[in-house]
């Protein structure tokens, strides 16, 4: 059986912002400065919120960008906050973001990193 290494203490940040304002780009740059290694982006269409604003609803864009960023628990709060600020989510209709705890995160861990961590005694055998 092939060996699996999984990461604990992993979290996922998901942001939903409007496409037209190009917020996603600023948020990704901020996330990168704070240590996030990569992201996934989707282009989607949102429904619902604009209907509740009456005539003002026309100001809400329905084209949305969704970005997923995977972070460690140590990075979690700083990256989350930095992305919030970079995306200026403290405006009405600017979008929203949320954090999800990931039970396990599994992928290939490069041998050089694995060796380093093993020597430092940071690899535990999982039960």
């Amino acid at each position: 059986m092939s060996q699996m290494t999984y990461l604990t203490d992993a979290w996922m940040i998901t942001c939903v912002v409007s496409t037209a304002t190009n917020q996603a780009r600023d948020m990704l740059l901020a996330a990168r400065d704070f240590g996030a290694k990569g992201a996934l982006g989707y282009h989607v269409r949102g429904y619902g919120a604009r209907e509740r604003l009456g005539k003002l609803g026309i100001a809400v864009e329905t084209d949305k960008d969704v970005i997923n960023v995977l972070v460690s628990s140590d990075q979690r709060d700083s990256v989350f906050e930095a992305m919030f600020r970079a995306g200026e989510l403290d405006r009405p209709s600017a979008g929203f973001m949320y954090l999800t705890k990931l039970e396990k995160l599994a992928a290939y861990v490069p041998a050089s990193i694995m060796k380093e961590l093993k020597e430092a005694g940071k690899v535990r055998s999982a039960l």
């Binding site: 059986m1 060996q3 999984y6 990461l7 604990t8 400065d33 700083s78 995160l105 055998s125």
Partner: peptide, 20 residues
């Protein structure tokens, strides 16, 4: 299950992705 999975190892994401 324990014998089956013993080959698996576990790392804290904090060791791979340090905070700024």
């Amino acid at each position: 299950q324990r014998t089956f999975w013993t080959q698996n190892s576990e790392i804290s994401a904090n060791d791979i992705f340090p905070a700024a």
